[in-house]
Amino acid sequence: MYKAPERILLGHGSGGRLSHDLIKHFILPAFANPVLSELHDGARLTIDGARLAFSTDSYVVKPRFFPGGDIGKLAVCGTVNDLAMCGAEPLYLSAGFIVEEGLPAGELQQIIASMQSAALAAGVAIVTGDTKVVEKGAVDGLYINTAGIGRILPGVDIDARRVKPGQTVIVSGYLGDHAIAVMSERHGLTLPAQIVSDCAPLNKLVRELLTAVPAAVTMLRDPTRGGLATTLNEIAADAGVGIILEENAVPVRPEVQAVCEILGFDPLYLANEGKVIVIVEKEYNEQVLAIMRQNALAGSACIIGTVTEKPPGQVALKTMVGGLRLVDMLAGEQLPRIC
């Protein structure tokens, strides 16, 4: 039986099981409606015959600047990607800033310039927003909220209910780079130069894929908070299927794996900000991989697993020695404030 916490914990923002409990027992009962109940990366709406996607997210990453990106780039790419995961072409964003008194003006200018650059790269316009300044100590420098709206591409139906046994799980590239890059900057660690955040807008990659083979793709998700393991657990639970991953197929850079082994992290749970999980009908495997690998953001795209009947609602990892171990949803928080 669920027991409500007396206080909200940092782990409730992890994207893992505590986050799911917070949503299920606090938020959904108050706001329940058919659109919200889908719990995808964004809401899918039909207005006067137009199929639209709408999403919002808030960014509290610490530190604000890290190898490969900053909070501004992250805010734009994160919302663009959430819309893309709905099968939509992102069009317009809003930007809300909560600024702590004393933040250097030059730093704010740098972050805004980064947002401008990311928006241009994604082909979206920031068309409205808000700014609040609060007293020193009320926030940690700067928090950003972005919301976005996009048009769902013709013939596209991204829905967990379409995920069936026999389909294939593909990921667009190496996992865990973002989390390790942020952690290294946070703790002053010196890591190899190739470990930088993968933060990038995925909408053009997704559009290329969905334009070429719209019927082949049943599910899209970006494995952000909670990482690959949590995201696949969400899909398995929503679809009522099992997912079996091949350990030797999951792409993790040796440098990232080494850091994880030293610090006790599991790369399956590390956050990513420029990767996409694609679930496709098996007969389209080679075509989908060929399309993805032509894009610079998915040159290392690969098959990592299969959708199965069992274990229903769960994810398992086939180890390199041939055994199976269950891969549960993230329980707490490996790295807080990662996005």
Rank of each mutant, 00 (worst) to 15 (best):
A298H: 12
N295Q: 15
G166R: 01
V241H: 10
I71E: 00
P192C: 03
Q257K: 13
I23R: 11
D21L: 09
M1I: 06
I244V: 14
R221E: 05
L297H: 15
A32W: 05
L52Y: 01
I112H: 03
L93P: 02
R151Q: 15
G11E: 09
G305E: 02
E261W: 05
V196L: 05
S300H: 13
M183D: 09
S300V: 06
E255W: 04
T190C: 03
S37E: 14
L210W: 09
G150V: 02
G148K: 02
T146D: 03
I144K: 01
I98L: 09
K164W: 08
A43M: 13
R253H: 12
D41F: 15
R221F: 08
L18F: 07
Q110K: 11
F66I: 02
D328T: 11
L202M: 11
L103C: 07
E261V: 09
G227A: 14
K24A: 11
R64C: 09
I170F: 05
Q167R: 05
K62G: 06
G78K: 00
L205T: 05
R7V: 12
G123H: 01
V276Q: 09
L326R: 14
L52V: 12
I126G: 00
R225L: 14
L220W: 06
P251C: 13
D238F: 11
V321E: 15
A75F: 00
I180E: 02
P5T: 09
P34L: 08
L335T: 10
E247N: 08
L245V: 15
E283A: 14
N81K: 02
Q167V: 11
G102Y: 04
D159F: 08
G16H: 00
V213D: 11
K132T: 10
S117E: 13
H187Y: 10
C302G: 10
E261M: 07
L202N: 01
N81V: 06
R151H: 15
N233G: 06
D157G: 05
I8D: 05
L103A: 01
L270Q: 12
V327I: 15
T308A: 13
H40A: 05
F265E: 05
N203E: 07
E38G: 07
L268A: 04
Q116E: 14
A147H: 01
T46D: 09
I170L: 12
E89S: 14
L324H: 07
D266S: 15
N233D: 05
A215T: 13
G274P: 02
N203Y: 05
V280C: 08
M329N: 13
T224N: 14
N33E: 06
L189P: 06
P29T: 14
E273G: 12
V35N: 07
T306Y: 08
T231Q: 13
G148N: 04
R44H: 05
V327E: 08
A160R: 01
S37V: 12
P336Q: 12
C77S: 10
I243A: 03
L9F: 10
N233A: 08
L202W: 00
P251W: 08
V288R: 00
L270F: 08
L52D: 06
K310P: 03
G173H: 06
V35L: 15
P154G: 04
D222K: 10
T224E: 07
A32M: 10
I126S: 04
I111P: 02
V169D: 00
L202T: 04
P267V: 03
D48V: 12
L324T: 06
K204G: 03
S55C: 13
V196W: 00
